[in-house]
Design a protein around this nucleic acid. Structure first.
Length: 373
DNA sequence: CCCTCGATCAC
DNA sequence: CCTCATATCGAGGG
């Protein structure tokens, strides 16, 4: 019944900071790590930037061309993403973080949660010390800063980590929840993006405090039962979601075509995606029963199709064959077929390979529950 | 209840 | 000019 103590660890401007570690001179200049789409020399988007670049408004998501224009004459540097390198740094850091509690959950390449309630014996002052220790440990071993949030649940811990960065540490004790949440704009709630924000504004709801007091029935009507309730709960700082290792449930790969097309060579464009997905499946010891396609039109609208397979697979052949069929059906559906800019493959209905019917051995069941106990 | 699709979010 | 990847939700159809 006593509140849990959850720690969120958020690695600061991760990709850009990784580049700064390799080349410390980069710390002195505006830096943008970019995803080049290959369409033209500069087409693509910015993935992550350091804080010097952010001062000029160069932030994630903006077109590379814009970033280049803004930073020209300012000594700015643009680098292409090196995912393998970031992954290796991430793996080592997550290994470090996970030593602080058996209740560990990695949310993304640069974020993780720990439930340290037992470890600090419900003591918030000890939790702060532990947070400092984690930050120092990561910095000593990897020369990388992170922001830490400590709170009674994952939602608040993440918002606390976001509250002061880079290199911050913020604590929200149970009795501080409303003073922390109430004045903030609804947009700061995890899960509230531009669309939901817009709808809330139309209801006259601007702050999290206002959302927390808003009639739940009206929220349910507008956002649906589930999401409506979720919004109300979040605004009151309620989140029971446990810190738990979550199995991967889907995998996807997407690429940008060299030029927009009504039809394209499935072989040539889809093969590398299918190959990569198959390798990933095998690497994780997983197999998939659902293959889907993702198509992004010239107008940046998303279309998707999916097919549940007769049997589980982890081979690039089956993935490729299924995806090709789905694309050919997508094109057939319309007279001319949609004009596509980007295409992708998605795998769903995943399961662990050593997890089929009869052989879900107690060994694995107990091992998993043990890890999260 | 299950499947499929589109939307939304956050990375 | 506008990347890539993942989880979740709701609607609609069976």
């Amino acid at each position: 019944m006593t509140p849990r103590i959850i720690v969120a660890v958020d690695l600061d401007y991760f990709y850009a900071q990784c580049e700064e570690i390799r080349k410390p001179q980069l710390k002195q200049v505006p830096l943008a790590v970019c995803v080049y789409s290959g369409r033209t020399e500069i087409s693509g988007a910015v993935s992550t930037t350091n804080y010097l670049a952010r001062k000029f408004g160069v932030k994630s998501g903006i077109p590379i061309a814009n970033a280049k224009r803004i930073l020209s004459g300012k000594g700015g540097v643009l680098l292409p993403v090196d995912q393998d390198y970031y992954n290796s740094v991430s793996d080592r850091i997550m290994e470090i973080v996970s030593t602080y509690s058996r209740k560990f959950e990695q949310v993304s390449v640069d974020e993780a949660f720990l439930d340290v309630t037992d470890r600090v014996a419900h003591d918030w002052s000890l939790a702060r010390q532990l947070g400092e220790e984690i930050k120092k440990d990561i910095y000593d071993k990897e020369q990388l800063t992170c922001s830490v949030g400590i709170a009674p649940n994952k939602l608040l811990a993440k918002m606390a980590a976001d509250f002061e960065k880079p290199n911050g540490l913020t604590i929200i004790k149970p009795e501080q929840i409303s003073q922390f949440l109430d004045p903030q704009p609804v947009r700061n709630l995890i899960g509230v993006g531009p669309k939901i924000e817009e709808k809330l504004h139309k209801l006259g709801v601007k702050t999290i405090g206002q959302l927390g007091n808003f009639d739940a029935e009206i929220l349910k009507e507008i956002f649906g039962t589930n999401l409506g309730l979720q919004l109300k709960n979040m605004a009151q700082g309620i989140d029971e979601d446990p810190v738990k290792r979550k199995p991967v449930s889907q995998l996807s790969r997407i690429v940008t075509l060299k030029s927009d097309a009504n039809s394209f060579s499935f072989e040539q464009n889809l093969e590398p995606l299918a190959q990569s997905l198959s390798e990933k499946l095998v690497g994780l010891g997983l197999e998939s029963k659902l293959v889907g396609i993702i198509a992004i039109t010239t107008e940046l609208k998303t279309k998707s199709r999916a097919k549940t397979l007769d049997a589980y697979t982890d081979t690039s052949e089956v993935i490729l064959r299924t995806a090709a069929v789905l694309f050919s059906e997508l094109f057939k559906a319309e007279e001319k077929g949609p004009e596509l800019r980007r295409i992708g493959i998605r795998l769903g209905a995943l399961r662990s390979k050593e997890d089929d019917s009869k052989k879900r051995s107690e060994v694995q069941g107990t091992l998993t529950s043990f890890l999260n106990s």
